[in-house]
Design a protein around this nucleic acid. Structure first.
Lengths: 114, 114
DNA sequence: TGACTTTATCGTATGTTTACGATAAATGTG
DNA sequence: CACATTTATCGTAAACATACGATAAAGTCA
């Protein structure tokens, strides 16, 4: 049926929608920390993330899942342990979209009449 | 009392927390569109935003409030009409934080062993 | 094989976001 | 002054996000 009273996001055009999705993916400090940890370690790690983030293991796993579904990280299940790492392409796409927005809302040349 | 079972965001350190707040502010396409409209018009407008965004007036007003409380726009109530414009300082702060993150998670030099 | 480790997923509680209509507040207009 | 216009706020419903514990799944190791 798809009533969707509270989700009109599809109304908006592609670029803003995609950017909003990336923004949502990084809209929680734990997820930002996870990205930083993965960058800092310069390699894939697994349960080490859980040790560094003061949240329950299941919660961290959930945040990892969100980052993965946003395309910012990649994960490989490898037996009992999982291996996550940054996804260069996804990060590049996000960066391009954000920089596009920043360029548009560059305020140097905007004179506000308020 | 402040039991806060579902809000552990304050646990995280300042920079990630602040970045997450900005990210949340732009995590809805309507809010991104509003920023773009304000930039494009190169001036403060009021109900014109409502005409350009396919959402109810009260909903747009709510989005404007969020952008304002995030520090990305400024608004002046001027009698029956309001006047919003981009907030250069807030946008600059957000940009700096995002670019700091992008620099950290720059993946050119990260070799994934997955 | 049985115990252990590691991680994902399920179930659930609680809080937050998104959306709308209705209404209030502030001001201008006939 | 009554009325229209404009916008914020209130109330509310539905959906989503966040967090946890419990448990399942899939491997390792003694």
């Amino acid at each position: 049926m798809c009533i969707m009273k509270n989700n009109k996001k599809e109304i908006f055009k592609g670029e803003s929608l995609k950017l909003a999705e990336f923004a949502k993916a990084v809209s929680h400090p734990a997820r930002i920390e996870i990205l930083k940890i993965l960058a800092e370690k310069n390699s894939c790690i697994c349960g080490e993330i859980v040790l560094e983030i003061p949240l329950a293991q299941s919660t961290v796993s959930q945040h990892l899942k969100e980052l993965k579904s946003a395309g910012l990280i990649a994960g490989e299940i490898d037996g009992p342990r999982s291996c996550y790492c940054l996804n260069a392409e996804g990060i590049a796409v996000m960066r391009r979209l954000f920089e596009g927005l920043f360029a548009v809302i560059e305020t140097d040349n905007i004179k506000c009449k308020c």
